[in-house]
């Protein structure tokens, strides 16, 4: 029984790692622009689909991965330029509708490009499953966890140690004053979409060898990413990391013990509880009733 639960936990860690990456994208965009980007999951799908279809066409994995991240970043850039920026006068609810429309449009676009067939991607490295206290992780899980480590370390260093990162923090803390000091808010908003999309795309590339990918995969990633982001705190990057892993583990254990159908249900029950009891999330700072 214990061994079984441990195996569920390990499975949850792999899912949690990808949820954390999606959540990081949410948090970046939300912090910089105040927008909840309902299309975040689609960046993961675009990354996974691009890498998988290029690899299927015979391109070496590393090249396919690099192009996939680039394509995802471009999709993020175009999303901002075509859908978000022209609506800059819009307020809260309208922006929700716009990113929802973006999500629907990107999923429909994927149907044109890739059709309804599922794609798969070979694992980046061969070898045996990694044993850990009697449980097992697929070798690809190491790539996923390593990606988390690198992405979150890079984000931390950027915000804590660089001039540009400090400027972004200033812009988040007080946009009008930051703007007075010449901080380009709009450029930061653009950049947040590009970086969030690239992170999502990278996540899609490294996770795809495990579950495969198809045109509507972004929905699941996006929904799980929200829960993780809200759970951790919408304004906290460490919260996104923590929220992702907590959600992945809780979902897997609950799904294993109850029934697979409850996996998602438990995640969303948690989301409701967090929204009601602690809207700032586990590591978030202030209660923002917006």
């Amino acid at each position: 029984m214990i061994a079984q639960i441990w195996q569920y936990v390990l499975g949850g860690v792999v899912d949690g790692a990808i949820f954390a990456l999606v959540a990081a994208g949410f948090v970046l965009i939300y912090q910089v622009t105040g927008i909840i980007n309902f299309a975040q999951g689609e960046f993961v799908m675009v990354g996974g689909m691009t890498a998988a279809s290029l690899a299927a066409a015979g391109m070496p994995p590393l090249g396919a991965a690099a192009i996939a991240v680039l394509v995802a970043a471009c999709v993020g850039a175009l999303s901002y330029l075509l859908a978000i920026r022209p609506a800059r006068a819009a307020t809260g609810v309208t922006l929700i509708f716009i990113t929802l429309g973006l999500d629907v449009a990107l999923r429909g676009l994927a149907l044109f490009v890739w059709g309804t067939n599922p794609y798969s991607l070979p694992a980046f490295s061969g070898g045996n499953a990694v044993k850990l206290f009697g449980g097992a992780l697929p070798p690809q899980a190491m790539w996923v966890l390593g990606t988390d480590l690198i992405v979150f370390a890079a984000l931390y260093l950027f915000f804590a140690r660089t001039y540009a990162g400090t400027a972004v923090r200033a812009a988040v803390a007080n946009p009008p004053i930051a703007s007075t000091f010449g901080i380009p808010l709009r450029t930061f908003a653009f950049a947040s979409f590009v970086v969030a999309a690239a992170i999502g795309g990278l996540g899609g590339v490294v996770i795809t060898p495990i579950p495969g990918v198809q045109y509507d995969a972004g929905l699941t990633y996006g929904l799980a990413g929200f829960v993780a982001a809200v759970l951790g705190g919408l304004d906290s990057l460490p919260g996104a990391l923590l929220g992702g892993f907590v959600l992945g583990i809780v979902e897997h254990v609950a799904g294993g013990l109850l029934s697979p159908g409850w996996e998602q249900g438990v995640g969303f029950l948690i989301l409701v509880l967090v929204l009601v009891l602690r809207p700032q999330g586990l590591l978030g700072r202030a209660v923002r009733r917006a």
Binding site: L82, G101, V104, A105, G108, L111
Partner: peptide, 17 residues
């Protein structure tokens, strides 16, 4: 598949803008 969703999403964004 439901590719018409692409146009519906695009119409929604265009209308909101």
């Amino acid at each position: 598949g439901d590719f018409q969703q692409f146009f519906l999403g695009a119409v929604l964004i265009a209308i909101l803008i």
